[in-house]
Amino acid sequence: MSDQLPPAPSGAPHGGTPRGPQPPFDRERFVFKTLAVVICTQLLIYSLAAGVCGQRALAGRPVGQVCPGTLEKLQMGFDSTLNLLLALLGGAALTRVGRPPGS
Rank of each mutant, 00 (worst) to 15 (best):
S103H: 11
T70I: 00
P62K: 07
E28H: 08
L82K: 14
S80V: 05
V31R: 15
L5G: 09
G15Y: 09
G11I: 04
A12K: 13
Q22A: 07
L85A: 12
R96W: 00
G102A: 07
R19A: 15
R29N: 05
P23I: 00
G102D: 04
V66S: 12
Q22M: 03
A49R: 07
T34D: 08
A50K: 15
L58E: 11
L89E: 10
T81K: 03
L5A: 14
M76A: 15
A12F: 13
L88K: 01
P18Y: 04
L89I: 03
A57D: 11
G15T: 04
P6K: 14
A50S: 15
G11C: 10
A92C: 13
C53P: 01
L58D: 12
G16P: 01
L43M: 08
P9W: 06
M76G: 04
K33E: 10
V66H: 11
Q65E: 12
R19L: 13
P100N: 09
Q55C: 09
L5R: 13
R27W: 11
Q4A: 08
V66P: 00
F25S: 01
P23V: 01
E28N: 10
T41L: 08
L74Q: 14
C40R: 12
N83C: 05
V52D: 04
L58T: 03
R56W: 05
Q4I: 01
L5H: 13
V37P: 00
T70P: 00
M76S: 11
T95G: 03
G60S: 12
I45K: 09
P7R: 13
F30I: 01
A8Y: 09
C40G: 07
Q65I: 02
Q65K: 12
Q42L: 11
A93D: 06
A36M: 05
K73I: 04
